[in-house]
Design a protein around this nucleic acid. Structure first.
Lengths: 210, 210
DNA sequence: GTCTATATGCGGATAGAC
DNA sequence: GTCTATCCGCATATAGAC
């Protein structure tokens, strides 16, 4: 469902559409399904969105905007590398698994349903988001705290994080913050965050692997 | 395309179907598309498969069979934990990114197109595959070589590995073996494999994190 | 085993009244 | 801004000839 704001009819439509697109996929969801869930008829939908694809694009663009905002906000206070990386992991998971789960999942898994033109636009937005990760990861590479191939590190991290949308259940034993802590430790084992986990050092130092 | 064997017409159909399902998605692919690519008419397809969904299920079941076989074969010679884990990472990536890429991707990303009944069957197969990972991971947990939540470790590892299907290009700088090595090092940094990487110790020992 | 022809329904989208 | 009514194409699936 993912009902968040209610700025007018369009947002309500987008929230419902996102939910249906996620659960049943874009192609299996008919505009009649969406209209029914909103208590209107299919014709009315086309007053707000010219095509079904426009609806999908709007859902996805909202998803990218939200996760970029979330990560940027979380980053605002942090200056040191370990905290910055942990913050990004946490913000990413919170945006992905929080109230915008529907839109985020659609963004991740429904882009093949877009026309080539729309695909280009949406993938460009995704690229912009992924670029946010490169600066801190490159820093970690320079300090010898992660594998030397920064792109591979980013893909591995984002892959692990994005996969949570397929299995994480909020009613389970782990809340999102705890999940973020654990995954951060797994994915950046040599980047220690001071205070939180009983680690000692935070400054870059020799990178012994046992 | 992913043409591997040619045991009769059915396999050819499945290979073509897998390719189209992967590239355009199950719903956007019509039985006519598949028939055209095979040089036949849509009616003929239904001589071999009673419904379009049956085709999807067959593609997916083939995918699970292949990756289980690949991982089991790779595991055959290995007795020690580090080598077993590295072997699983390598076999998983080879099955996922090799000649069966189409079927594997369909298995990962098209299961929502299945009817509930078929979904249950296919997800049971996927669970069986994922169960293969639990023994070595539990061992690593006991030895203190990974995070203590074995399920979380498995999901993180499989998430990172499965995501490669979205970005890995065989014509790039990294071949699958090198990719497997690098990802293994990232995902199991405290599990060292002797010989291959200039590491010294392989036996479990104190788990110092710097 | 493959073809042609077709039944049948649902899909996106539009027109025009209210 | 929402409704009703409808156009029209494409989808899966079937029947029966060859």
């Amino acid at each position: 469902m993912t009902k968040v704001r209610d700025n007018g009819r369009k947002d309500a439509i987008l929230a419902i559409a996102a939910g249906q697109f996620r659960r049943r996929g874009f192609e299996r969801t008919s505009v009649r399904d969406i209209a029914d869930a909103l208590g209107m008829t299919s014709g009315s939908l086309f007053y707000h969105f010219a095509t079904k694809e426009e609806l999908l694009v709007a859902v996805m663009e909202g998803g990218v905007r939200d996760i970029m905002q979330s990560v940027r906000d979380g980053l605002a206070g942090e200056t040191r590398l370990p905290e910055r990386l942990l913050s990004m992991v946490r913000s990413h998971l919170k945006a992905l698994l929080g109230p915008r789960l529907d839109a985020m999942t659609v963004l991740l898994y429904e882009w093949r349903s877009l026309s080539p033109a729309a695909q280009t636009r949406v993938l460009a937005l995704r690229d912009a988001y992924e670029a946010l990760w490169m600066d801190p990861i490159n820093e970690a590479v320079v300090l010898g705290l992660v594998e030397s191939d920064a792109v591979l590190v980013r893909q591995t991290v984002l892959g692990a994080l994005n996969w949570t949308a397929q299995w994480y259940r909020p009613e389970g034993r782990l809340d999102v913050d705890a999940l973020a802590q654990s995954m951060f430790k797994m994915l950046f084992p040599r980047v220690a965050v001071s205070g939180t986990l009983g680690e000692t050092a935070t400054s870059p130092q020799l990178t012994r692997r046992v």
